[in-house]
């Protein structure tokens, strides 16, 4: 036990952060249950988990992109969600089977992610600008081609993913988010490719000189981010049984918030799945809790903003505290 604590102090920052996040989540739960009697019920859990998958997938994608360094960021994920939704909806209207269209949608997500990857890593355009531009382009395309109106009329059985439940838990959570999270976590922590990604984020010159295909790895991360966004889009469509051209609006910022709150360092090299997952739970708990307590969504927005700033500035304060003790 003492050695574990000593390990904490000696600075495994990720571990320490996980503990802090769990504590934060507990605080959030306590506060929310104080705010509303409806919160601490068994039915709240599946309700909460309903919201988690879409944002969760986007947050995980963002975690990967930021982890790979560069510095990497993907501001276009929200627009990818919208555009893939529009494309799938459009294919469906043209008569393509909805599940096939979804599969094609995943490929489109990969393609859009590939575009981002090339712009940032091959042409070396700073990721902030490049993905800002693609955010405009993709999102605008979604809106312009549909003239702003959603594509409805998706078949009811398509709703299995987004609306259905198995064993009381939402299908999207059980069969999509959970497996994806587990796979990504295993990939990052236990496989060589995961080590390589972290190496790229830590010091890309060193990684490059060690023979790692830094460019290819980073492009791959953007492709993955695109695919995960497309997956999120499909879940959203399945939930609402419609493809909204502004489905992803604002999601990219939440995705970045979740990744950063979860402990992923903005310049890469540090971070991972568990932190992101807890961060999503925190954010969703706040969302649901405030909703149930009938408190304006504005508070939630402001709270997330404060959390974001505090969680990143904490880093430097934390280091200073550690330094004083040593």
């Amino acid at each position: 036990m003492m050695s574990r604590l000593a390990g904490l102090r000696a600075g495994d920052p990720l571990r320490a952060r996980l503990f802090m996040l769990l504590a934060l989540w507990l605080v959030a739960i306590v506060v929310m249950s104080l705010l509303s009697p409806y919160f601490l019920r068994a039915s709240t859990v599946p309700y909460l988990l309903q919201y988690v998958p879409i944002l969760g997938l986007l947050g995980l994608g963002q975690t990967l992109v930021i982890l790979g360094g560069g510095p990497g960021i993907d501001l276009s994920v929200g627009s990818i969600v919208s555009l893939v939704g529009v494309a799938v909806g459009g294919l469906f209207v043209l008569g393509v089977d909805i599940w096939l269209a979804s599969a094609l949608g995943l490929m489109l997500g990969a393609l859009l992610g590939f575009v981002n990857g090339v712009l940032v890593n091959v042409l070396r355009i700073p990721s902030l600008m490049a993905t800002l531009a693609t955010m405009f382009a993709f999102g605008g395309l979604a809106l312009a081609t549909t003239l702003g109106s959603p594509i409805g009329g998706l078949p009811a059985e398509f709703g299995w993913l987004g609306q259905g439940r198995t064993l009381g838990l939402p299908n999207a959570f059980l069969f999509v988010l959970l497996p994806v999270a587990v796979i990504l976590h295993v990939m990052i922590t236990r496989t060589t490719i995961g080590r390589h990604i972290v190496a790229c984020g830590n010091d890309d010159r060193a990684a490059h000189l060690s023979g790692l295909p830094v460019v290819r790895i980073r492009v791959g991360l953007y492709v993955l981010s695109g695919v995960l966004a497309a997956l999120g889009s499909i879940i959203a469509m399945s939930w609402f049984l419609a493809a909204r051209p502004d489905a992803g609006k604002g999601m990219e910022l939440l995705a970045v918030t979740i990744a950063v709150l979860g402990g992923t360092h903005i310049f890469g090299g540090t971070g991972g799945v568990p932190g992101t997952i807890i961060a999503i739970l925190i954010v969703t708990t706040l969302q649901i809790g405030l909703q149930l307590a009938n408190i304006s969504a504005a508070w939630q927005l402001g709270l997330i903003g404060v959390l974001l700033i505090v969680s990143v500035s904490r880093l430097s304060l934390w280091r200073r505290v550690k330094g004083a003790r040593a």
Partner: peptide, 27 residues
């Protein structure tokens, strides 16, 4: 202030403050 004294990278700092300002506006 947030980006200098709290050492938060500008993109994160202004993202956070955007949320906060929007919240103030809605409230």
């Amino acid at each position: 202030f947030v980006t200098t004294k709290l050492k938060v990278p500008p993109i994160i700092a202004t993202l956070g403050s955007m949320y906060i300002f929007s919240a103030i506006m809605f409230l």
